[in-house]
Each structure stands twice: as structure tokens, then as C-alpha cells.
Nucleic acid binder design. Structure first.
Lengths: 210, 210
DNA sequence: ACATATCTGTTTAAATTTTAACATACTTAA
DNA sequence: TTAAGTATGTTAAAATTTAAACAGATATGT
């Protein structure tokens, strides 16, 4: 939309959800305005960094006043794309897939869960969150018929790449990958990895006395 | 252990699990040696970065030869602390908690699942992975009796801080936090956040055409 | 209305992270 | 045994990220 938004540094991008969460909390508390200094206390980022981050999207603050919580919240939502609705499917409805479904339900309008897929016969046909679980065989056909923006990939490592290929072929724009493997995908399909076991390993490194 | 290891850059630390995974794959394939160049093709990091990363831990390569896969694998395991066994409990045995339990089972010797806790009466007393789910009320007592290294925090946002306080008080060294909130903890207790909804938001940002 | 304090946007500097370059050492094959 | 090729460790440069500094604009209290 805005033409300079391509240049938003990766580091800034990854902080946006945290800003949004903080602002949502403040809004809920009835806070109307906030300064970079107060937000710094709240978030643990330096006030300087907050001002610089927010400035990538244009001046939303006012000197001597601060930032309007409501307005800034809306703005960041728009930047992240949460002001629109994105269709989501979940492939692999094990524990992780169901946990993911719960997260998706938490958003009022930003996401719409449109499909669940699994290959386990016992699961096919049952419902999760009011949505029927379809057979994995139906995935390709489903993607032809329906426009899917995001797929949460909650299958095991072995089948991850195969499923990912089908998702890419079917026109999915982004994959939230929970399988602990690195997917090879065509240009244009975005991937966000959530390699849980790696977080555990990093934590283990941190607690190992050294 | 090594006295300069405190200086390992954060960015390097966070890449270690990925190195370990790649080396494990190679070992499984029977590859004995690997050069930084080949590893670069495999991982997508530059060869230069790989050499520089690995050098933080001492020279494990050999000029004209490369790196011994087996030896390097062992070394990184040791650096991460995976050559020892760490006790783990999971607090909150919903879908996420059970998924987490599965991950832990995947490690042969590095982790030992020693306890599961939940407050839902229907769950208490049932077993997951051969471990009985205890009542949340027993948590403090359990921590007094047992030495717990890591806790996976899989409870809802509302109770996360309260539980985290008990964990810290009980001597837990690290918390893998799945609750989408920022925990306030005493110095010395490490936290690794896995804020799944934030990954989804970042992915949404990436796919939003701009 | 005015002075003082507040707070942003922006510029400049520091720190961190990544990439490139290269000298040196080892391997391999003839 | 020797020469050519390979590949590391290390140093230097570039890029990115974070922090500090400050000028200018707004708010607030008297």
C-alpha cells in the first residue's frame, strides 16, 4: 500500500505483534494516551527504539502529548494486515493442530478457519470448533475450489514437504510451519517457522551454567 | 565451562539448533565430513557465516578437509547442554501441553519428563506418555521435593504469571512460555517465549501485498 | 499569555551482525 | 615428492540494528 513500507527492517517487523499486544492491553485498561517513555517501561524496549520503530509508518505521535493508544492500535493492526480477513486451513489436526485452531478462534475478524485436514481415519468427519475434519486426499481439490491465504502445517516431519508442495501448488500465500524441518518453496510463498524443539534447545543453552 | 563462551553472540546462539539438526541429518545419511561451502548450500547460511559461527567454540575444522560431522555434532550438543539430562515438567496439559510432551519424548537422553500438572478435574489422575497428571495444587510441594530444570508453561494468559511465580520460587531454572504474555521473573530464571499468535501475525504481514 | 516541562521526530553515534577477502595449511593425485 | 586444488581460521569491510542526543513543537500550570 504505502510505497516505502517494503523497507521496514526485519527486526522492526518482528516487534510489531508485541506493540500491538501492549497497546491492546492499555486500551482495555482505558488508557488513552501513552508516551514512548511509559511504553518503554511497559515493554522493556528503549524509548528511542520505540519512537524510531513507530516512525517507519509515519508520525503517529504528537510532541508534548505522546501517542493516542486507540489510533496507534488501529494503525498497527492495518500494517500487520489484521484489518482484513484471511482464510486459514490447518493441515494435521493432532494436538498442535487443535491448539492452533484455538488461537485462530481468538481473533474476531482477522482470520476465518475454513478447513481442517488429517489422514487419520478416526479423525476424518469429526468436528473441531464447528468445522468438519476432511481427509487429506481432499486437500488439492479443496484448494482449487477455495481461496486459502494461510495454512498451518501441523503434520509430522516426514510428510511436511509433500504437503507443503501441494499447498504452494494450490495457491496458498503463507505457511505457518510447525514441522521441524526447513521447507523448500517457490518464490512468493512465505513461511514462518515455529520450531518448538529449537526453542527448548535454546532455553537449555541458557540455563546451562557457564 | 569454557570461559569465553559467555561472549557468544545471541544471533549465533539462536542458530545452533539449526546446525545441530543439519548435522544430525547428515550423520543419518552417512556423511562423514562436510565443508562450510556444502553446509552453506544445505542450510542457506553463507559459508563465511558458518565458519565464523563455528569458530566461537574453537577450531573444529581442518584446512583442506572440512568438518567432521560426528565430532561437530557432539560438540554442538555439548554446547547446547544436550549431553546432560534435564528434568522437565509441563504445566497445563491442554492440546499444547500434550504436543509439548510429544516433543520431549523425541529426545533420547537430554530430557526427562518428570511431571504434568493441570487444574481440570477431568484430566487429573489420567496419564499422558506414561506420566500421571497431577493437580495444580501439588505444584509447589512437588517443586520442593524434586529438582526441576525446565517448565513448559502451557496455561492460559490469565494464570501464566501466577504459575510462573511459583515455578521461579520453586527453583526452576528455565521456562518455555507458550502463554502470549510477557512474564516478570527474578534474575536468573531464563525464559524462552513461544508466542504462536505472534508468528501468525508476522506471517500475515508478510503475505499482505505491499 | 507566558514560561516551563514534556515528548516527538530526526540526526548522529555506537554496537552488533553479516559478508567478503585472504593468508595459510592440509589433501590428493601424479 | 611435489604441485594444484581445497577449505579453514582470521582479519577487514559492509550492512544492519540499537542507543544516544538534540532541536522543535505541544501541553500544562500559573
Amino acid at each position: 500500500m504505502r510505497d516505502d513500507s517494503k523497507k521496514i527492517p526485519v527486526a522492526v517487523k518482528r516487534r510489531l505483534p508485541r506493540y500491538l499486544r501492549a497497546l491492546g492491553d492499555l486500551k482495555k485498561k482505558g488508557v488513552e494516551k501513552i508516551s514512548s517513555g511509559s511504553l518503554s517501561d511497559y515493554l522493556g524496549y528503549t524509548a528511542s527504539q520505540i519512537r524510531q520503530d513507530l516512525n517507519h509508518f509515519g508520525g503517529f505521535g504528537q510532541q508534548g502529548y505522546g501517542y493516542n493508544v486507540e489510533a496507534l492500535c488501529k494503525e498497527i493492526e492495518a500494517i500487520l494486515g489484521l484489518d482484513r480477513t484471511h482464510s486459514i486451513i490447518i493441515v494435521g489436526v493432532g494436538h498442535l493442530g487443535q491448539a492452533m485452531a484455538n488461537y485462530v478462534e481468538g481473533y474476531e475478524k482477522s482470520y476465518e478457519l475454513v478447513g481442517l485436514f488429517d489422514i487419520k481415519p478416526a479423525l476424518i468427519g469429526t468436528e473441531v470448533g464447528g468445522i468438519k475434519i476432511r481427509s487429506g486426499d481432499e486437500l488439492e481439490g479443496f484448494l482449487k475450489e477455495n481461496s486459502v491465504d494461510i495454512a498451518a502445517l501441523c503434520v509430522n516431519v516426514e510428510s511436511a514437504q509433500t504437503v507443503a508442495d501441494k499447498l504452494a501448488e494450490g495457491g496458498v500465500k503463507g505457511i505457518l510451519n510447525f514441522a521441524v524441518t526447513d521447507l523448500d518453496l517457490p518464490e512468493g510463498v512465505k513461511v514462518e517457522n515455529v520450531h518448538i524443539s529449537e526453542f527448548l534447545e535454546i532455553l537449555t543453552f541458557d540455563i546451562s551454567d557457564r
